[in-house]
Simulated scan of single mutants.
Amino acid sequence: MKITLLTHQRELDRKTNTGALALACCGALVERVVWERRNPDPALVEAVERGEAALVYPIDSDHDAQLEDFNRVILIDATWQEARKIYNHSPYLKAAPKFAISTETASSYRLRRNQPEGGLCTAECVMAILHRIGKRKAATRLGAAFESFNISPGTQPTKTN
């Protein structure tokens, strides 16, 4: 399974971006696609149209998608406000099967304000997905890096393959 971070352009230069941390720690399991409103990534759109990709997105409806049924998981890598903009301006994301990640613990991410209750940062979502699909070593590696990053933002580990 591939985790695709659909990243808002502004996230690329933010020291508090945990998507970059997931990319560095998880090798080929995680990839980044920069979101473009007018020119969406054709492979991503096709994956959704073929029913091969599901979107992680917290909405107020039934989530009948099962993570294990998909080859690709799309995770919006942006602030909460930017994530809503990406979703609202991307018809292919609205058409994608959706599932939510629920955890019993609150987010430990403290580097940004306006975290909604129950909301997780990108790295925490990636860790939850990795645990669910049995990639425990990658999840543990990302978790250790996230702990350090959460104390000292901008500290990126060496990229792994």
Rank of each mutant, 00 (worst) to 15 (best):
K2Y: 07
I3P: 06
L5Q: 06
T7I: 06
Q9C: 08
Q9A: 14
Q9L: 14
R10M: 13
L12A: 10
R14E: 11
G27Y: 04
E31T: 09
E31L: 00
R38Q: 09
N39Y: 13
P40E: 04
D41G: 00
E46I: 00
E46R: 11
E46S: 11
A47P: 02
E49D: 13
R50F: 08
E52W: 08
E52T: 00
V56Y: 04
Y57F: 15
P58T: 05
P58N: 07
I59S: 15
I59L: 14
S61R: 12
S61V: 12
D62Q: 07
A65Y: 05
L67I: 13
D69F: 03
F70M: 04
R72I: 05
L75R: 04
W80G: 02
Q81D: 15
A83W: 05
R84V: 15
R84W: 13
Y87H: 04
N88V: 05
K94R: 12
A95M: 01
A96F: 01
I101E: 08
T103F: 10
T105F: 15
L111H: 03
N114C: 03
N114A: 02
Q115G: 01
P116S: 03
E117S: 12
E117H: 09
C121I: 06
A123F: 11
A123E: 06
C125S: 13
V126P: 13
A128S: 15
L130I: 12
L130Y: 09
L130H: 08
H131V: 11
I133N: 10
K135D: 11
A139V: 10
G143M: 09
A145W: 06
S148P: 00
S152C: 13
T155Q: 07
T155F: 07
Q156G: 00
P157F: 09
